[in-house]
C-alpha cells in the first residue's frame, strides 16, 4: 500500500447558478478531510459556495491520442456553433 495520501480533484461552485469548476487537486486521507483541505487550500478568498471532491483515480479520462477522432469532426461543421446569434448584454455567464 502506498504511504502517500490519495489524490483528490477539487471542484468549486463560485456562486449560485454557476456550475462547479475544476480548480486543482490535493492530497487527503479520505473524503471528509479532502473537503477540509480544499477549504483551506482553495477557498481562502471567498471563492465558493460549494465544494466537490472526487478521487482522481475515479475519474475516467479520454486519451489525448483520441483527440482527432473525438473532436475534429465537429470543427468542420460550422452550423453547430451558435456564433450567429447576437447575445443581449444582460445575459451573463452563458
Amino acid at each position: 500500500m502506498s504511504k502517500e495520501w490519495p489524490l483528490w480533484e477539487v471542484f468549486i461552485r463560485s456562486q449560485h447558478g454557476l456550475a462547479h469548476k475544476h480548480v486543482g487537486s490535493l492530497h487527503a486521507p479520505d473524503a471528509e478531510m479532502a473537503i477540509n483541505n480544499a477549504r483551506d487550500v482553495y477557498t481562502r478568498r471567498n471563492e465558493g459556495v460549494s465544494i466537490w471532491v472526487v478521487k482522481a483515480a475515479d475519474i475516467v479520462a479520454s486519451s489525448p491520442a483520441d483527440k482527432d477522432a473525438l473532436f475534429e469532426p465537429s470543427n468542420s461543421k460550422v452550423y453547430r456553433h451558435p456564433t450567429f446569434f447576437p447575445m443581449p448584454e444582460e445575459v451573463k455567464n452563458l
Binding site: W5, L26, H27, A28, N36, N37, D40, V41, R44
Partner: peptide, 11 residues
C-alpha cells in the same frame, strides 16, 4: 507535515 496541513495551520 504536508502542504495541505501547512496551509491549514497557517490559516
Amino acid at each position: 507535515p504536508a502542504l495541505e496541513e501547512d496551509m491549514a495551520l497557517t490559516n
